[in-house]
Write a protein that binds this DNA or RNA. Structure first.
Lengths: 132, 132
DNA sequence: ATCCGACTTAAAGTCAACTTGAAGTCAAGT
DNA sequence: ACTTGACTTCAAGTTGACTTTAAGTCGGAT
């Protein structure tokens, strides 16, 4: 298959596919007259990339999935290791979101923004500032 | 106060303060011999920026807080309008996180990554791919 | 007079994950 | 032979919120 066909079947753009190859997430395919020529197993590989992406894994983390374990480590263990970390991250994010929502729900009764500033400043116990 | 003193008292770096000025989030202060000279009300303004930041507002949204409403609109209304939007965004994000966590909790029993790819591909009903 | 630290500007760099553009190549169809 | 469309490479652009760097200026203390 050409890169265009792979793109159409996988849903990734051709340039994204080239990019993944460039950063080491896809093996270099055979070439026919300069052009990349893939066999259909590339679609499985790309399906994994898509899954990893929808799991919130960065490309660096996704690289781990392929190259970050001792040869022969079963995929169940690979996924589990990465998943545990990511779930912990997501739970941290959920906590931050909850805190942010509470902040957002606080009503304001100031007469102008300058008063907002004064109130916020007088209440600030130097801790609540972490962004998402 | 000089920008350095404002930086120390506010917790923002001097260059961040200059940047906020540059993008229109802070008024241009008086100058004394080229240098910026602030009065203490800048600290209230920066406290609002800090609060907006910890509410997850982008600088563009924060600009709205100051300049996005009819003159005279009370801060309560300003905050409420922006807060409602942001809360909706955060709830959408929470849904995505929940979906991602479910995906991450799915156990894998494949014997190798190629099998993972085949399984993912055969199950894929072209919908579950949205990243965070 | 000279030195230091704090300040000034404009421009460039950072991060991720790609996309876009420019300029060129290839194979197939007319 | 010529056109077309899909491909190639490499470099640069995109987004947001800053930071960093370079080169220069200022005021106060020695």
């Amino acid at each position: 298959m050409t890169i265009g066909q792979v793109a159409k079947e996988s849903g990734f753009t051709a340039s994204a596919i080239r990019y993944y190859e460039q950063v080491g997430l896809l093996p270099r395919p055979a070439r026919a007259g300069g052009r990349r020529h893939y066999d259909r197993s590339i679609l499985e590989r790309l399906a994994i990339l898509e899954r990893a992406k929808s799991c919130g894994f960065s490309l660096a983390e996704t690289r781990q999935l392929f190259h970050g374990f001792r040869e022969g480590t079963p995929p169940s263990e690979r996924w589990q290791t990465l998943a545990r970390r990511k779930i912990a991250e997501l739970e941290e994010l959920e906590r931050k979101i909850a805190a942010t929502k509470e902040l957002l729900q606080r009503p304001c009764a100031c007469k102008d923004l300058a008063e907002c500033g004064r109130r916020i400043r007088s209440r600030s116990r130097r801790a609540a500032a972490a962004p998402l």
